[in-house]
Design a protein around this nucleic acid. Structure first.
Lengths: 330, 330
DNA sequence: GAAACTTGTCGAAGCGCTTCGATTGAGGAA
DNA sequence: TTCCTCAATCGAAGCGCTTCGACAAGTTTC
């Protein structure tokens, strides 16, 4: 348990178990068959000495670092809590595969990818919040570093991408509202900036939302500031007096939308229905609590890590994985 | 630029520059003097080949991994965006010191610390959101892994701790309100759970808030749910009719507090004053925008990383560093 | 003009691990 | 019994880097 001095090595373990170092290695990796008795003795020695293989040595000899990198965007408009959930999910899953996670920010860009790849610091990479045209994607292709992307770039050929099925999410919202008897509905979407940047995601929601027949539906981008949100809602209500259903795909706006509706005399949950695309807390922390389709950050992270692990082990994985959205009714 | 095959090694660089591998190493590390001409040739070769040293080999030979770990809490009541800012700040600063950052979650606990320490995977550690009685702290002491804590455990002897000066933050709020002419003020604090868990932080705010003489001040913990927050505010107003100043140290509650005040006919910024301890967005996204003392996550992260770097380089750093709060008026 | 340093460079010895034969006994097949 | 196979183990050769001691050429110093 207690480390005797500094650094217990495989040789120490071997000596204590009365075997060769290579035998210890084989016991630990399971790459050759070892008699149960020997294995027991080795494991006992490992436990006694509190042995953990030196990561550097291992990576040097085996050409496997046991580390994957995650590159995060730290950009305007990103919803930080979701990123954090994502990170937590990824770390948890990675640890299940005995991998650690190196944290990178998008600031490092393609050069950062080149660096970690060339230094063999990581075995693979998860790239978050991929944009439609993303310079990192090209770098990734060039480097041949095993990777999984969250989101879809314009050309995803030869890449492994994972994302929420935003089309289905949009449709789920329309369905929910339709089932509550709304005939005229609207989607208050992401801010303009988001639409400009990564069309993919926002447009898919739009498409899904508009895809349900028999409804009068429209989509509007949503402004950034509280007062403007309220004004936008008021304008919408004025322009469409028969509107009875609203989907909101914009975390920070939800609270303000609810005020504006209350001010306008709409009784949400009774004569007017609202559904949110966003994290649970957002939908829970307003009154009344709203139904929501969340971005299942944890599931996405898990899926991404699993795919990456399979790639590292030489298996094939689907090029594109869309996670089904879940609508939670509160 | 383009990698020829797989893996450019120091030997390749040496060959191209016409020197010994050790010379390349010395050029890169600056640990021995090298003639400018040779250095140039080497650097040119490095650039030509896109050489990056193999991290594992380097760590094996030099006993320095070039990686620091950050252990994050993923716990209830943590404000995720702040954590993320923290992470971003730490990564940025670490990169400035040519270090990478390994992400760990508190789930791994003391055993996780033992693992990364024994495997020489990281050179040092930053431990976030330290609790008053934290089992990880003891493990840290035992392991002798260089580390910096964010927050203060009960016994911080021999440790390096960094945190916001919460006492000063509390006082700054009281000062702000006093300057606006409020004679009777209150602090709506963290939720009960937080008080129970890490007394340090919440109590320091309380202490600071109550420390200004000549004011009638009180502190109340704040409930978790929207309706209860509103009720709590109403009760407070009823109990203290002369109350004209309120400090809120509870991110999710701010919006609801503002409603309750509006409902009660208080005109914030005119006959009633409110100040927030929390992130900018929280204070900006209500109407009217509020002054706030933020938890300077980025600064704290930077300070923590710098301290850790200095420790790794064998310098002394102060045991305890309190970052001055800044009050932003909007 | 010899002794004593400096400066710039090289070669070799590891760092701790994995992995590739090689080796040794047993157990089976012939 | 002899030969072959197979399971279990060992020893040695690296993986790519840093670092230590040497050493050849200057530079000083007396």
């Amino acid at each position: 348990m207690a480390a005797p001095g500094r650094g217990v090595t495989i040789a120490d373990v071997a000596a204590r178990a009365g075997v060769a170092a290579s035998t210890v290695s084989y016991v630990l990796s399971g790459k050759r068959s070892i008699s149960p008795e020997t294995a027991d003795r080795v494991m006992q020695a490992v436990a006694d000495l509190g042995y953990h293989p030196h990561a550097g040595a291992r990576s040097l000899a085996s050409r496997r670092a046991g580390v994957i990198a995650m590159m995060f965007p730290i950009r305007d408009g990103m919803h930080l809590p979701v990123l954090m959930q994502f990170a937590a999910g990824a770390v948890a899953e990675a640890r299940r595969h005995d991998q650690d996670v190196l944290l990178m920010t998008a600031d490092e860009g393609p050069a950062g990818l080149a660096r970690v790849a060339a230094s063999a610091m990581v075995d693979g990479l998860i790239l978050m919040d991929v944009e439609v045209r993303d310079p990192r994607v090209e770098a990734l292709r060039r480097l041949g570093l095993p990777s999984v992307l969250i989101g879809f770039p314009a050309d995803s050929a030869g890449l492994t991408c994972v994302d929420l099925d935003f089309t289905a999410a949009g449709r789920a919202c329309a369905d929910y509202l339709a089932e509550r008897g709304c005939g005229e509905i609207a989607l208050l979407g992401a801010s303009e900036a988001v639409y400009e940047r990564r069309t993919g995601f926002a447009e898919r929601v739009r498409e899904g939302f508009l895809s349900r027949p028999g409804l009068r539906a429209e989509v509007r981008p949503c402004p950034n500031f509280p007062m403007e949100v309220q004004r936008a809602v008021k304008e919408l209500l004025a322009a469409r007096p028969d509107l009875t259903g609203l989907a909101v795909h914009n975390e920070p706006a939800v609270g303000h939308v609810m005020h504006a509706l209350a001010d306008a005399g709409k009784r949400v949950g009774e004569d007017f229905h609202v559904v949110v695309i966003g994290p649970d807390e957002v939908a829970e922390r307003v009154h009344p609590q709203l139904p929501s389709v969340l971005v299942p950050a944890e599931t996405l992270a898990q899926t991404a890590v699993r795919h990456l692990m399979r790639k590292l082990d030489g298996f094939d994985v689907p090029d594109s994985t869309l996670v089904e959205p879940q609508l939670t009714i509160r």
